[in-house]
Amino acid sequence: MVRLLGSIMLTKRGFTFHSLISAKLYPRFWNVIDVTKHRNQIMQNIKHSCLLVVLMLLSACASNVVVNGDIPKPLMQQLPLTAKLNFSEEFLNYTYVEQDKKRVIKSLDFGQAQVELFRVVFGSAFRLSEGNTTASDIEITPKVLSIQYSAPRETALNIYEVFVKYRITISDANQQKLADWVIKGYGKTPTAFLKGADAAFNAATNVALRDVGAQISIGLPLQASIKALTLAKSFNRDGVSTLPTTSPTSFALPSTASEAEVKAARVKALKAALKGAIRAEGQE
């Protein structure tokens, strides 16, 4: 409502943004003077005023936003698998840099927040293997595919929005790809309860990351390859699945069977379970 657009008028006390009110109607108020007589004073006033305007405009903008992660631990049953998280350097330090100078933010740094997200979510789903020496059943590699955002001044909506897209590649211990999963997270937050654009983008990005975490938590145990691996891993030495939720499944082995025989039987059961899971998913 406050209109700062319009003609700029030079006065003895500075310069004036003038929109609707005519100086001719209010000569005493606007105090219009001859520019040539007070040139130095006016130039100084212009400099001060420009500085003030720039400071005001800068204070209204978000610049470099650093997202503080706020991801709770998901309420999910841990699967009997060991997972290793592979974060690339680019992923660990991911910062979206805005190329368009007219847009609201210069950069959005959420590398730390997304690493926390994947650690919390996959840490609840699996036992995480630390370091390079520990063996793991699966390896998980997340990658940022794209990020988009919008601010109220761009959309005329009263909300800040963040949209983030990830590709999550899951491979087994032999680097065989098991799943390639694209997940999109969307977060929005109203402007009313937030004081600045920085806080709004921080909140909206957190909502988007929570959305990604929610989809992983719900969808991961339903992935065919994860189901099959979980089932295969759940067979104990006696060939009986220890999973509480799966139907009784077993492979017969004599009690004198060697470790190698148990391992071979596990691989066989894994292949059968994989086939069954893929077939079941196809039927769904």
Binding site: V2, R3, T11, F17, H48
Partner: peptide, 10 residues
């Protein structure tokens, strides 16, 4: 409605 604002060093 409308509003005009003036900014000056003073």
């Amino acid at each position: 409605g409308s509003m005009s604002c003036t900014i000056a060093p003073n």
